[in-house]
Each structure stands twice: as C-alpha cells, then as structure tokens.
C-alpha cells in the first residue's frame, strides 16, 4: 500500500482542495438554511430546529479550512485500494463517463419506457462501458435480468415496477 501515495500524488496535484471547497460550500448552505428558519421560542422545545444545523455548519466550515491548510502543506488523503482497484494508473474517465451515461439513460427512460427497457439499457451499457465486447451475450443477459426482476418484484413482492412502453405486453 505504501507505494501508492507517491505515484498517485504527482497525478493528483492539488485537486483535493476541491474537497475543502465542497465542505465549505456545504457548511455555508447548512448555515444559510438554518438562519432562514423562523421559529418562535417555545418552552417545550428550547433547543429548536436551528441548533444542530449551526453545530454541523461549524464542523463543516472548520473541516474545510483545516483540510485546505493540510493540503497546501502537502498532506493528502490516501486513495482507497481494493481487490479490483489498481491505483498505479490515473483515473480512467473513458470508462467512468459512459458508465454514468448508462446510469443517466436509465433515469430518463425508467418512467417512460419502463423498467424492462431501461434496466436492459443500464446493464448492457454498463457492461459495455466496463469493457465487455460480447454484444449479443451481454444483451441477452441484460434482458433476462430485467424481465426476471420485473416479474420477481411484481409477483413475489407486490411492487409494480413501471411497465412503460411495454404495458399490455408484460
């Protein structure tokens, strides 16, 4: 594990400041939201709904500042390893972006086209993005799991996933 941070650090640069920024923005959002709450003082609830948000906003803002200082001084978070993770090469956006695209396609399609179609698109697209090139086999598997889960949820659990375009056929 110890060999990873050195090679990864050069590639990462100071992008970790983005995390500090995110924490800071989150802190400000929580703070502004809490200030905007209007609550009359009540005997039965002296703490009110604002106290915890203030504490959390404070925690986030302090962490944002400290993290920024830590990163500028050369500190860095240790990227997470794992069985299938190889940190020796930089982030491979050519895999991630199509994967996200498949996910977004599912979101857009699910209510209109129905789960069977959108789930098939999701599985097939994800497998393709991740490097599988068995187009037909992937498609059959994708269709099979989508249809099976549709009926499994409908018949087994009583949860009606949307049928969408295939309504009447399924």
């Amino acid at each position: 594990m110890s060999s990873f941070p050195t090679s990864a650090s050069r590639l990462k640069g100071r992008s970790e400041l983005g995390v500090a920024l995110l924490l800071g923005v989150a802190g400000v959002v929580v703070l502004v939201d809490a200030i905007a709450l209007v609550t009359p003082y009540s005997q039965s609830d002296p703490v009110g709904p604002k106290t915890l948000p203030y504490i959390i906003a404070g925690l986030l803002l302090v962490c944002a500042v400290l993290l920024a200082v830590n990163v500028l001084r050369g500190g860095q978070g240790e990227a997470e390893g794992g069985e299938d993770v190889d940190l020796s090469h930089p982030a491979d956006w050519k895999t991630v972006l199509p994967l996200v695209a498949a996910f977004v396609a599912n979101i857009l399609l699910i209510d209109w086209a129905g789960w069977v179609i959108s789930g098939t698109v999701l599985f097939w697209g994800s497998a393709w993005a991740l490097g599988s090139r068995h187009y037909v086999r992937d498609g059959l598997i994708a269709l099979a799991v989508s249809v099976l889960t549709f009926y499994g949820f409908y018949l087994g659990l009583g949860i009606p996933l949307p049928a969408g375009l295939l309504e009447g056929i399924l």
Binding site: F103, W115, L122, F123, S126, A127, L161
Partner: peptide
C-alpha cells in the same frame, strides 16, 4: 468484472427505485 459491476449498478438502481 464487467458483469459484476454492471450487476451492482443494476441492483443498486433497482433497490433504490423500489
């Protein structure tokens, strides 16, 4: 691995949506 992670995303979507 493509099937494993495609499957994880598939079931994650299904679980969250249901």
């Amino acid at each position: 691995r493509p099937y494993l992670y495609a499957g994880i995303l598939f079931f994650a979507t299904l679980g969250a949506y249901s």
